[in-house]
Structure formats: C-alpha cells, structure tokens
Design a protein around this nucleic acid. Structure first.
Lengths: 215, 215
DNA sequence: TCGGCACTACACTGTGCAGTGTACTTCTCG
DNA sequence: CGAGAAGTACACTGCACAGTGTAGTGCCGA
C-alpha cells in the first residue's frame, strides 16, 4: 500500500499522494462527481499543486489510469514449454490475465475510466490496443504449440480470441459491469477449466483418453 | 423513420419528439454533455414541456433506454425444432441476438447508458437481468435438445454462458467499446460459425469422431 | 363557441465546479 | 546559510446547467 512514498523528492511524494487520492476518489465517486478540490483535500495538498503536477482533470484521470496499467503490466507472462501439459499452460494464461480481477482498485477504476473514455474513441482505441497486447502472447504461444504439433489451429488469431472470449465473457465483463459478484477462486477455476476443456476439445492434438488432467 | 408521429394526441406527438431528440442527443454528445435545453430545442419543444413529460434528466434517459429496449425486444425468438440441424438453430440464436448490433442507434445509446448506469449498481443489475432474459432461451433450448439426445450437456447454464461469451466476446464488446468496426455480415457469420463449431465439437452428440461418452 | 389542458417564452435561482493569479511560506540542496 | 524550487492559502472568474415559477397562448373536444 504505502510503499511508494518513501525516500523520494518532496515533489514526488506529493505527486504520488495526488495519484493515490485521485484513484480512490474517482473509483468511489465517479469521474464527474469528483471535484478537483476534493482530490486536493484528500491528498492533503493544495489544489494549486494538483494543477502544477497535472494539466487538468482529464489528464489526471489519464495519469491515474496509466499508473495502474503499468503497475499491473508487471505481472507474469507465459511462455511455451513443450514439457508442460497444454491445459496447465492455458490455465496459467487465464489466471495471469484474471489476476487483475482480484485487484478491486483496478476494477473500480476501469469501470470509471470506461465510462469516461467511452466518449473519446481515439483514446479508447489506443489504450485498448495496449491492454490487448497481452492477448497476443497467446497467439505466439499457439504458434509455438502448433509448430510442435500439439495443437491444430489454422486461424490462431481467432482461436486466441475465442479463448479470451470464453474467459472474459464469464468472468470479466459481468464483474466490470457489476452484474455478478467477483467470483470465488473455486468458481473462477471452474470457469477456466470449462473454457480450457472446450478449447482443447477442438484444438488440442494430444488428447490421450478422458484426459481431464486433474492438476 | 417517422412512423410513430402519426394520428396521435398533440401530447403524444410532443412526447415522441422529445424521445427522438433525446435519443440522438444522448447518443451523439453523451449524457453529461447534453443539456436539457439542447434536447428541448432539438425536439422543437419548450424546455418546460420536457419537464412536464419526464421527471428529470435521468428519468428521461431511462425512458429513452426503455423505449428502444422495447423496440428491440420485438425480435424473433428461437424454439427447439428436432428436425433442424443443431448448427442452423444455434446460428439463428446468434443472428437474432446480434441483430441489435446492426442498429447503430442502439449501440450508440447503449454505450452512453452503460457509462451512466455504471454508477448505479441497482439499475444496472435490474436492466441487465432483463436484457439477459434472452440468454435463458438458449438454456431452455439446450434442455430440449438434451432431452432429445442431440447434445450432451450437464451444466446447461455454463454451456449457454460459454456460447454467448464466444459470440459477444468477438462481436459485441469490441463494437460497443469502439475497439473494432462493426463487422460485415461475412465476418459476422464467420465468427458465428467458428463459435458454433467450437461449441458443437464439445457438446454436440451427433458428431461422429471424438466421442467422449463417459457418463 | 367555450372551457380547460397542454404548450410556450422567459426569466431566474442556485449550485457546483474547473481553472487561474498571487502573495506568502516551507523545503531542499549546494 | 541562502537562493530558488515547490507548495500553500484563498480569493475570484466564468461558466454551464438542472430545475422552477409564471403569465400568457394555442389547441382540441364537447
């Protein structure tokens, strides 16, 4: 939590405080309903300082968003490992991506940011591209697995999209939109396993028997 | 286009005009950026009249949303037909649901409404429930198909969720969020076919090859 | 033709907020 | 210590807009 406010310039400390304050304010109150005065107060900083650090309200939201995006980007990635069962590797993919879901700060913030960016098609597109960069990792993985003869996929893009659709459609969007409670780890794994089963039934090339590989 | 402004009370005509104006205004400008004055002007109606017909801004958005929801709800549904191939029936499901995507008024409006409702968890839940009512139709369909021995599905809810996740994940969310252009009919059908293929490979019982009887 | 309902024009309140300008204080670092 | 960068307090501009009150006008049905 308070691990980023140590041993820095006064300026950097202030900046961090503002970002933290803005994060919770935006998340809890929404964008429009959060005033810059409130953020300043919450950060224990003068309003002027907020404006000295960030161009304006919109820029501040952008900075907050970037900040957390970067924070989350430092999550593990998955590489092709010939020796490991396909299901296990796919599970790792899914878990890594869904790790963001367990970060309530992020989900709340994303909700708000989505609402705001929705009216900024350019921003959306740009940010979405960066966020879906990780989706591409699965494409590479599929290429490797395909070369190794472990999956039979002609259209890797589509297969990857399908996999993510299965995962996100059940676990991500419903949570983002508040239609569903965040899943328990057990539920989450059940969905992931279901998705992997569906996926490998079609694309997997190694099916031994009733290989519902219990790991 | 102008098919709902005929032969009605003056009051009803005005009301319709307001709804129409609000629709385009909200869709084009977003919720916050649209003033009631602007809607009134656009509808060729005095601001006071707007307030006489609708409680306030939020209520107006609600009414607009309801209006179009009702308009779209008058779309075809799909029933279990033993004689028809599974794939064809599923395709009908998918097409019916995606018909809304071809209504640009609706997508634009949904975008805005999502942004607003995002801060109203109760409203979201209620509306989402109504909107996902149609998902349930697939569950019933699966029950019938299962009883007829044409599919082997234990968890129908999950299977239905997976199907919709496949469809929406590739065609719905990306369009709503403006990450992707609306698909051409050809692209749309390609995705649908891909989803159906994946789905039936696992759940279809009329498939010759990879039989996983197990039960 | 007349009564009343719906609509209009418009002024007006009240608020909330983004963003700025400035004189003053505090911190930090050489 | 001393200078300058950064922060503070606060007053203030300007605006946009939701929502209301009212006095008058047009419309529609009986």
């Amino acid at each position: 939590m308070a691990d980023e406010s140590e041993g820095e310039t006064r300026s950097e400390r202030k900046r961090a405080a503002i970002l933290r304050a803005a994060t919770t304010a935006f998340r809890d109150e929404g964008y429009e309903s959060t005033s810059m005065d409130r953020i300043a107060a919450l950060a224990g900083v003068s309003k002027r300082t907020v404006y000295n650090h960030f161009g304006g309200k919109e820029a501040l939201l952008g900075a907050v968003f970037e900040h957390h995006l970067a924070r989350l980007a430092s999550r593990a990635r998955v590489d092709w490992e010939p020796a490991r069962p396909l299901a296990a590797q796919l599970r790792a993919f899914a878990r890594a991506k869904l790790a963001t879901l367990e970060d309530p700060v992020w989900t709340g913030l994303l909700r708000v940011a989505l609402g705001v960016f929705m009216h900024h098609p350019d921003l959306v597109r740009e940010t979405a591209l960066r966020a879906s960069r990780s989706d591409d990792a699965l494409v590479s993985w599929l290429r490797a697995a395909s070369a190794a003869g472990r999956v039979r996929v002609d259209d890797r893009e589509r297969a990857a999209a399908q996999f993510w659709a299965l995962i996100k459609g059940e676990l991500f969007w419903p949570v983002i939109f508040g239609v569903r409670e965040p899943p328990t780890p057990a539920q989450r794994d059940a969905v992931i396993d279901g998705a992997i089963e569906l996926f490998l039934e079609r694309y997997g090339a190694e099916r031994p028997a009733t290989g519902r590989g219990a790991s």
